[in-house]
Design a protein around this nucleic acid. Structure first.
Length: 138
DNA sequence: GCCAACGTTGGC
DNA sequence: GCCAACGTTGGC
């Protein structure tokens, strides 16, 4: 039976070394083209991004935490454009994500070197529950 | 086409 | 700063 197509958004997670380009830089600039990712699997995730998809910005290199939320304004071809939406305050650390035990199958946990990847809907829900302030940005 | 050596990333 | 994971390069 046909059913009305509801447009759904996908979630992603993008890592960045804050020493090179941080969430604060994105916040200041408002928007940025997310480029410089070379790994094939990571580029596939970038290419899959569509306008209005949501991206969790993650600081690698010491901080290891989700620090912000962004929206895809231009799709990946393969470099998408991100618009800053909101900080995650306080950041949600990889440690917390691991300790939740909910995301053991996720690439963030399984494949530490992967820099860009899809994020499960369950992670978005879990994060919003942990940081209710994010609701306003969604 | 295999695989050893090397380089890079990111967690700790 | 170290090391594990893993992608890439180059000799054969």
């Amino acid at each position: 039976m046909a059913r009305a197509q509801v447009s759904t958004i996908s979630y992603f997670l993008a890592k960045t070394d804050p020493g090179t380009y941080s969430m604060e830089d994105l916040r200041r600039e408002g928007k940025t083209v997310w480029e410089g990712v070379r790994n094939a699997l990571a580029r596939r995730a970038l290419a899959a991004m569509r306008a209005s998809d949501l991206v969790f910005i993650y600081h690698s290199m010491g901080q290891s935490a989700v620090v912000g939320l962004a929206k895809v304004t231009k799709p990946g071809n393969p470099d998408p454009e991100f618009q800053f939406l909101a900080p995650v305050e306080p950041p949600v650390t990889l440690k917390e994500i691991k300790e939740s035990g909910l995301f053991d199958e996720w690439s963030l946990v399984r494949q530490s070197r992967l820099s860009t990847m899809p994020a499960p809907d369950s992670f978005a829900k879990w994060l919003i529950k942990k940081r209710p302030a994010l609701k306003a940005a969604l």
